[in-house]
Design a protein around this nucleic acid. Structure first.
Length: 613
DNA sequence: ATAGGGTTAG
């Protein structure tokens, strides 16, 4: 590496190994650059905050402890800041004490801001209250960023009363503080209050808009997030990278491909740099819209990829049923020197599961602990159960559950139950259901799965028993909802929904569609279709599942050859799945359907899931 | 010289 002393700080960013950092340090030392205290402080700060080096934090600590006379307030504040974002935030207090112990130094507003954020990151209420008290004692509570930090911290700690009190005591809250309050209210679920505060703000900058948009996005209220983004453009607020990230998240959640593409064009037209965060959000949006090729294209165009980027891609491939590619990507991730985390393994195991790669999956699960020192979560166990079950190895699945070191959760039994549905094992299915109900009485998905097991084996008594049970336990099925996008406009359909302005035409189209499908050999299995519907509606032959309504509407609205893209909130039922297969053949139309778990790509009468889901 | 908002899975 060629080293100049022109801009030592920028070079820190380029180092990706501890050796390179040491080398750089040696060169700067030899050149006498680090004799200048401000530059030394900057160097330490850059090392501490350098995101690319795994050992940057201990190394910056080492640098600092070898030159105590250089430990300026700036350097120590930087250490507190760096730790506040790390996995060991509580170490911030070590540097806070160092400031207190140094005769020539005393903490300032920056110190407390970072310290308070460290407490939030550490979820440490006692430390947080101590930092709050210290900031008060030293007179820094008038600082907007300290206020903002406190509000953020109490929101993070789940203490709604506390952040309201902090905010309530202020006479004239600054823009920064108001924004923190909006964000805190949204985070604690009080989105309406957040919106009210937001609307009442005399000035709203980009950050305030982003906080509000992210608030909606976080609660899954993605349409409101996009609506607000529209308003933001009307007001002429300058749109930046962070805005785009929030908007892309909302698009991904909704499966709003047209709007997502618009963002992509915007990013390119305005020459926004494809940073890790923005690139990841963009690639993830394409994955969640079922556009694997575009997603991978963005992925490989990125200059830098971190664990989020890789995990998003592995998970995206798994969702789209490309499990083999997941493992390939995992190898490339390792070659790139990026360490996987818990979430990466969830994605990988799901990939092995959908691809039926049982042996690989078992190796992956084993390597988690042995090679990466990662303790599996309940989710990981659930994935493995799903993997065995899906492959038809129900015995392996059940003995895996029995061998779990902790109490199996409802998810593990749920995975087994789904496997029993796929492989038509009533006896084991009933057992799994029983176990599941001891843990989670209100999981409507379990009831539907069990009912489908009965239905597929024509056991009508079983079906009605489940219905009775649901009624007795007061379990209500979440209403099925499908969303499609036509010309950038989102259309939402519920089960038996007749509220769409063009419903009459939808109904006609639907009838024509179904009769064409029937003459092509489609046979319905009404028992399953009707399970989700209320008793009185059962008689009504026109009560269609939301995805069927969405398909009929697409056929009458979309030009020939345009892919139908549907996002569904629940798992797709057998009948709608069958219908989609036939539509793809009879109407020569590709359908991409995202359900609760995965994607179904229908083409020429075949689904990418090979009828296993 | 340092401060706010955002990314992954379920």
């Amino acid at each position: 590496m060629a080293i100049t002393t022109q801009n030592p700080i920028a070079i820190v960013e380029l180092c990706s190994t501890l050796r390179q950092l040491r080398q750089l340090h040696g060169h700067l030392l030899a050149a006498g650059v680090l004799l200048d205290p401000p530059l030394f402080a900057k160097f330490v700060a850059a090392v501490a905050l350098s995101p690319r080096t795994p050992h940057h934090l201990p190394y910056s600590h080492e640098l600092l402890s070898h030159s105590p006379h250089h430990a300026s307030l700036f350097a120590l504040n930087s250490m507190i800041r760096a730790h506040s974002k790390s996995s060991t935030p509580i170490k911030s207090f070590h540097f806070y004490r160092q400031i207190l112990l140094a005769d020539a130094l005393s903490p300032d507003n920056y110190t407390f801001n970072f310290l308070i954020r460290a407490c939030a990151q550490a979820s440490a209420p006692e430390a947080g209250r101590a930092a709050h008290a210290a900031a008060l004692r030293r007179g820094f509570l008038s600082d907007a960023h300290v206020q903002s930090g406190l509000i953020h911290m109490y929101a993070e700690l789940g203490s709604s009363d506390a952040f309201r009190r902090v905010y309530g005591e202020l006479q004239n809250p600054d823009l920064v503080t108001q924004t923190a309050m909006v964000s805190a209210c949204a985070e604690s679920g009080e989105i309406e209050l957040a919106r009210q505060l937001f609307d009442e703000m005399p000035h709203r900058d980009v950050v305030a808009w982003n906080a509000m948009i992210a608030g909606y996005s976080h609660l899954g209220r993605s349409r409101e997030a996009l609506d607000l983004f529209g308003l933001m453009q009307v007001e002429g607020v300058r749109i930046g990278e962070a805005t785009m990230v929030s908007v892309l998240t909302a698009c991904a959640h909704l499966g709003a491909l047209d709007q997502g593409k618009w963002v992509h064009v915007f990013v390119e037209k305005n020459k926004l740099r494809l940073t890790v965060t923005l690139g990841t959000a963009l690639s993830d949006m394409y994955f969640k819209c079922g556009c694997v090729a575009r997603a991978m294209d963005v992925f490989w165009r990125m200059k830098e990829r971190n664990v989020y980027t890789w995990t998003s891609a592995i998970s995206g491939l798994a969702m789209n049923g490309n499990g083999g590619k997941c493992l390939e990507l995992f190898e490339q991730m390792k070659d790139d020197g990026v360490l996987p985390n818990e979430v990466t393994f969830v994605a990988l195991l799901r990939g092995c599961s959908v691809a039926g790669l049982v042996e690989d999956g078992r190796d992956v699960f084993e390597s988690m602990k042995s090679r990466y020192g990662i303790e599996p979560w309940l989710e990981h166990y659930g994935c493995v159960v799903d993997m065995y079950g899906r492959a038809g190895r129900l015995k392996d699945a059940i003995s895996f559950i029995d061998a779990m070191p902790m109490e199996p959760h409802a998810g593990a039994w749920g995975a087994l139950l789904n496997a029993c549905r796929l492989h038509k094992n009533i006896e084991l299915g009933e057992y799994a259901m029983e176990k599941m109900m001891q843990l989670e009485l209100r999981n409507h998905g379990a009831y539907v799965s069990l009912s489908n097991i009965y239905a597929e084996s024509r056991n009508w008594h079983g079906v009605s028993d489940v219905r009775e049970l649901m009624k007795a336990k007061g379990v209500r099925k979440e209403p099925g909802c499908s969303v499609i996008e036509v010309d950038g406009q989102l259309h939402e359909f519920f089960v038996g929904d007749k509220s769409h302005p063009k419903y009459i035409k939808i109904e006609t189209t639907m009838k024509e569609m179904m009769s064409k499908l029937r003459s092509a050999g489609y046979v319905s299995r009404t028992n399953q279709v009707l399970f989700d519907i209320e008793e009185e509606e059962k008689e009504d032959a026109l009560c269609w599942h939301s995805e069927k309504l969405a398909i009929a509407f697409s056929l009458m609205s979309l030009r020939d050859g345009v892919t139908i893209r549907i996002v569904k909130n629940l798992r797709v039922c057998w009948d709608c799945h069958e219908t989609s297969k036939f539509v793809s053949k009879v109407f020569d139309r590709e359908i991409v359907m995202r359900d609760r778990n995965r994607f179904h790509h229908f083409k020429d009468g075949v689904c990418s899931c090979m009828d296993y889901w």
